[in-house]
């Protein structure tokens, strides 16, 4: 007989092993993303004369495993802006749900369908600059609570004076804008190509839509060549004042792997 009342009714350690009571600890350390799990690679975007073009491939990797090959990482917002996500895919999906909610609220609040025809249907709704500000505050708040959303996000669209807008925000809430932007590997591989065509805002304002799309497609090809966590299937979005055109089933064309033969210096080579 054990005379300690707190032991009564408990399983004996020597029979069942020590009892794991950890699940009872609801006030234990709070959990937060400490590293991304399923990830998307680069997102790239380039401004042009009357809008912005953005692209990202359709791959979600699990470490070095190409885990999901049909994940769309660009999403339109209120048919006036586009948001592109790099980094953790579950955090992207959380933000996606959150933005859907925000868009619904916004569409209800500024319902211009019944008002006069001179006010555009989207008047008064959040533009890309407003959305970017909002997302940056959200990301910064999450970093302040040590529970970051592990993404780098590009936002494309127009600002309040109806000029093309492109800006980035990352998991720490750092924000910046530039005529061309690229996250992840794209910052090393695609950004130099895009900057060659649009080093300044003035240069970008001279680019036509077709030129911009061609440059971005070229960048996607380079990224597929050199980024091991990439895919030849990608999405491309073009935002203009008329709205968002999003194509999610693009295939890299005219690949040439001839350059690969000339690469020397990595691992075993016979010659």
């Amino acid at each position: 007989m054990d005379h300690r009342p707190q032991a009564w009714g408990r399983p004996r350690d020597d029979v069942y092993g020590a009892y794991d009571a950890s699940y009872l600890h609801t006030n234990g350390p709070k959990t937060a993303t400490q590293s991304p799990i399923v990830t998307g690679t680069s997102v790239i975007a380039l401004k042009f004369k009357d809008g912005v073009v953005m692209a990202a491939d359709n791959l979600a990797s699990y470490g070095s495993l190409a885990r999901f090959t049909d994940v769309k990482r660009l999403r339109p917002f209120l048919s006036t802006s586009v948001v592109g996500f790099g980094g953790d895919v579950s955090d992207m999906q959380f933000l996606d749900r959150h933005l859907t909610e925000l868009a619904i609220d916004e569409a209800y609040e500024h319902d211009n369908t019944s008002s006069s025809s001179e006010t555009p249907a989207t008047a008064g709704q959040l533009n890309a600059a407003n959305l970017h500000k909002y997302l940056s505050k959200l990301m910064y708040r999450r970093r302040n609570s040590f529970d970051p959303l592990w993404n780098q996000i590009l936002v494309a669209g127009f600002d309040s004076s109806s000029t093309p807008f492109l800006a980035s925000v990352d998991l720490r809430g750092t924000t910046f804008t530039s005529p061309s932007l690229a996250s992840g590997f794209g910052a090393m591989l695609a950004q130099p190509i895009m900057r060659r065509h649009a080093a300044t805002e003035e240069d970008a304002a001279k680019l036509t839509r077709d030129e911009a799309v061609a440059i971005v497609r070229e960048c996607m090809k380079v990224l597929f060549y050199r980024d091991a966590r990439s895919l030849d299937k990608y999405s491309i979005a073009v935002v203009t004042r008329d709205g968002v055109e999003l194509s999610e089933e693009e295939q890299l064309e005219k690949q040439s792997w001839a350059f690969a033969e000339r690469i020397r210096g990595y691992g075993t080579q016979t010659v």
């Binding site: 008064g124 959040l126 533009n127 407003n130």
Partner: peptide
């Protein structure tokens, strides 16, 4: 203004 960087819509 801090969260959205715009004038608050008057109706809101």
């Amino acid at each position: 203004r801090l969260t959205y960087g715009r004038n608050m819509p008057v109706r809101t």
